[in-house]
Design a protein around this nucleic acid. Structure first.
Lengths: 196, 196
DNA sequence: GTCTATAGACCGATAGAC
DNA sequence: GTCTATCGGTCTATAGAC
């Protein structure tokens, strides 16, 4: 769903990036994961792509916009996982699809997910970003249904943090993607009390 | 243990900080959690304390040293929790004490733990920091004994990430410390397959 | 869409007075 | 231990040629 070829402008705030914008976003995400958002300059992004700063400013007119576009690009991937889970036929299947999709996404984008969900600057952006709150709310609903008490909040937060944080922990650096994926999925399901 | 009044220089690399150094570390940790390590300047640290940059440089001669001192200060807290757990009489009690101590520490230092464990710059410091690797190894041993396979690695990484990441998730921002502590402890114990 | 060149602010770091 | 003052360099951002 939502291939990058078609325009598909569903949201006026976040239209599909052009090819040049996608290169900026990819370079930014790579550098953010290595140096953090605050430790990444426009010069570093330009050097990573192989152009000058002015060429980057032609795509996005402030650093703020680049950070927002990079965060939204990753959020869009997560939203696709959530939407696919919501399309399942039963709440049980939906919850299962969400956990599997979260693990797949976290492993596939091992180096970026942790920064996107933990960098304090991006966290500040998300705090005032309605799309992010809605995705989080939909994830919680898929995981714990209509419950909204402390246990529902803490268990959802722990599952998201466990999956997204574990993939960059030094303990798992030596594991290849398939082994990591299998273990993450099994342990995440166990955390939720799901069968094996 | 290890009150800041006594000299107690056990490690030549990380001696106990003076009062002035402790103020720098506290200001740095606060700002790191708000803006990230790369997004925090020495001017910001100096302003937070209410002195000039030169006064900060009198305590630590590079920014690198400040980041290292701040990371080590937090690592020392975690090491104390690990040491207390290791002093328990049985492996079961030790594991229990570790989980409880980790939760207490994460809740007490809600705003700082996530940054310390997830900021990419600090992560790079820890990668070449023997004390950090030893503490992680001791935590894994307390949690899963002599097992060193993928499951032992992934489950340890997930528990650490879950506890340290959940305390700053927007879902739990409205919970007071005691409620958060109780839920974190209960769910962490359930993740490890421990009784109630 | 990319370049060179530049503006003005801020960066980490140092010198030396008190 | 803190200050003022300063260094050279890098930062974000802009102007204008090709």
């Amino acid at each position: 769903m939502s291939r990058s070829g078609a325009p598909a402008a569903r949201d006026p705030a976040s239209v599909a990036p052009t090819a040049a914008q996608a290169r900026v976003i990819a370079a930014a995400l790579e550098l953010f994961s290595r140096y953090g958002v605050g430790g990444t300059s426009l010069q570093m992004i330009a050097d990573e792509i192989g152009v000058t700063k002015a060429a980057v400013y032609h795509q996005y007119s402030t650093k703020h916009e680049i950070v927002l576009a990079a965060a939204e690009a990753e959020l869009t991937r997560l939203e696709a996982v959530v939407a696919a889970a919501e399309a399942e036929r039963s709440p049980g299947r939906a919850r299962d699809a969400l956990v599997t999709g979260m693990v797949d996404l976290a492993v596939a984008r091992r180096r970026t997910v942790r920064t996107i969900l933990n960098d304090p600057i991006i966290g500040g952006f998300f705090a005032e970003h309605e799309q992010f709150r809605q995705v989080m709310h939909r994830m919680r609903h898929l995981l714990v249904g209509d419950e909204r008490g402390p246990e529902a909040r803490v268990s959802t937060a722990m599952l998201i943090a466990a999956i997204s944080g574990a993939v960059m922990h030094p303990f798992v650096a030596s594991l290849d993607d398939e082994v990591l994926r299998a273990q993450l999925l099994r342990l995440a399901r166990r955390f939720l009390g799901l069968p094996g």
